[in-house]
């Protein structure tokens, strides 16, 4: 079987469309994960035992079950209880929830790593809770979190093909349907690999820049 450039040119628009959906899912999923993670992290720090413990249980549950199962649940099971959402929305929710639990752990570690004396110093100079978070705690907690968050972002990106299982026409799904209808796998699948590799490399480079930027500021 030979590499066919004409075929590549023909399928490129469809593949790029798939890539677009993959990127949209990644960006929205990451944004949701960042927020969900923050909510989980804050709830876990709650002084109310019932809140912190049940949050811990939910987080453990989500982390301990496969993303694919969660996606199936959101897309195929929720409609039975009257919640039908578009496939893409389900995918973003699944990614956001799943990776939100990882983000929560990273946040928690980063925040716990800030010395206890910093909270006390902030209190002693009479900062409010909000000022303490914004000016003292987060600027120290965030930079060390960036490498771990970056790793999860890339991991999530590489897991987006799972969304094909719930009919999202992302990159992998597009490639599969092209391949199936043309009986040619080499070009679409190679291109999928290349796309993923390029995007991973770009995001890693971008996050390195971010990381250095934060380091300089501290």
């Amino acid at each position: 079987m030979e590499w066919d450039w004409t075929f590549v040119r023909d399928i490129m628009p469809l593949l790029l469309d798939g890539l677009r959906l993959t990127l949209v899912a990644t960006v929205l999923g990451a944004a949701l994960a960042a927020v969900v993670g923050l909510v989980f992290a804050v709830l876990r720090r709650s002084p109310i035992k019932a809140v912190s413990l049940s949050t811990a249980a939910v987080v453990e549950f989500i982390r301990g079950t496969p993303l694919l199962v969660q996606l199936y649940f959101i897309f195929f099971v929720l409609p039975d209880v009257g919640i039908s959402l578009p496939a893409m929305t389900c995918g973003v929710i699944g990614l956001g929830l799943h990776y939100g639990t990882y983000a929560a752990e990273v946040y928690r570690g980063g925040i716990d790593n800030v010395a206890k004396g910093q909270w006390e110093a902030a209190k002693a100079v009479n900062l409010t809770k909000r000022q303490t978070w914004v000016h003292v705690i987060l600027p120290q907690a965030i930079p060390p979190m960036i490498p771990a968050l970056a790793n999860y972002l890339v991991a999530m990106f590489k897991e987006t093909p799972l969304l094909s299982a719930i009919t999202v026409l992302e990159l992998m799904n597009q490639a599969k349907s092209i391949a199936n209808s043309n009986y040619r796998y080499i070009e679409p699948m190679t291109l999928v690999g290349v796309f993923f590799l390029i995007m991973s490399l770009i995001s890693v480079a971008f996050l390195r820049v971010l990381e250095n930027r934060f380091k300089e500021r501290t």
């Binding site: 910093q118 006390e120 110093a121 002693a124 100079v125 600027p139 501290t218």
Partner: peptide, 12 residues
Amino acid sequence: GMVFQHFNLFPH
């Protein structure tokens, strides 16, 4: 105001 044994300056 308070001054601590371990300074607790804001390192950043």
